[in-house]
């Protein structure tokens, strides 16, 4: 990894290609979850790597490259959300229209639909909560890492995780009540 970082610091585009290939799925997924739009996520993805190349000499190799990369993407996504709608970090700025098919179709496609409904409920959460949930459950980061990446206190991250999960559960149950009763 260190040798690859050094190649990147020499602005070797072959090394950049290796890094993009390695992280593209996760980084793109994170950006889509943040901005709820794959076209914008694509632009932010490109800007993230441009910024990586600009700042790679400032990267401290004692820290994880992954966290550094995601913190760059986080800053760009937050800037975008603030430009688009100043309050969008706090409030849900985009709600995917959810269509609930009739019960017979539900019987056939239960698991696929559940995950579609969950994805819809997830995308309607405020970006602050979505971000922590993505980093925790999809990227499997520790809360300390997330706090470091977001530049927030651990207690703040815990509170966002707790509220995010609670809101997601409620919204999921409202969108899909018949299948969430245990």
């Amino acid at each position: 990894m260190n040798a690859e970082i050094e190649r990147l610091q020499r602005h070797d585009f072959g090394a950049l290609s290796t890094f993009i290939t390695r992280y593209q799925r996760r980084l793109f997924r994170y950006l889509v979850r943040m901005v709820n739009d794959s076209n914008i996520a694509g632009d932010l993805f490109q800007q993230t790597w441009i910024r990586v190349m600009e700042r790679i000499r400032q990267y401290n190799q004692d820290k994880s490259f992954e966290s550094w990369l995601f913190s760059i993407a986080h800053n760009l996504a937050v800037d975008h959300l603030r430009r688009r709608q100043p309050q969008s970090l706090e409030e849900s700025e985009f709600v995917e229209p959810l269509t609930c098919p009739d019960p017979s179709a539900l019987e056939q496609l239960v698991s696929l639909e559940r995950s579609e409904v969950l994805a819809g409920a997830f995308s309607s959460l405020p970006a602050l909560y979505r971000e922590v949930l993505v980093l925790k459950f999809e990227e499997e980061m520790k809360l300390e890492e997330i706090a470091d990446l977001l530049g927030a206190r651990l207690s703040t991250v815990k509170s966002r995780l707790s509220r995010g999960l609670e809101r997601l559960r409620k919204q999921f149950e409202e969108s899909y009540p018949q299948k969430t009763k245990i």
Binding site: R25, S38, A41, E116, L118, L133, F137
Partner: peptide
């Protein structure tokens, strides 16, 4: 919800 959140479909690249 957490279990299903871990298996949300990935967006297409």
């Amino acid at each position: 919800v957490i279990t299903e959140l871990r298996f949300l479909p990935d967006p297409r690249l």
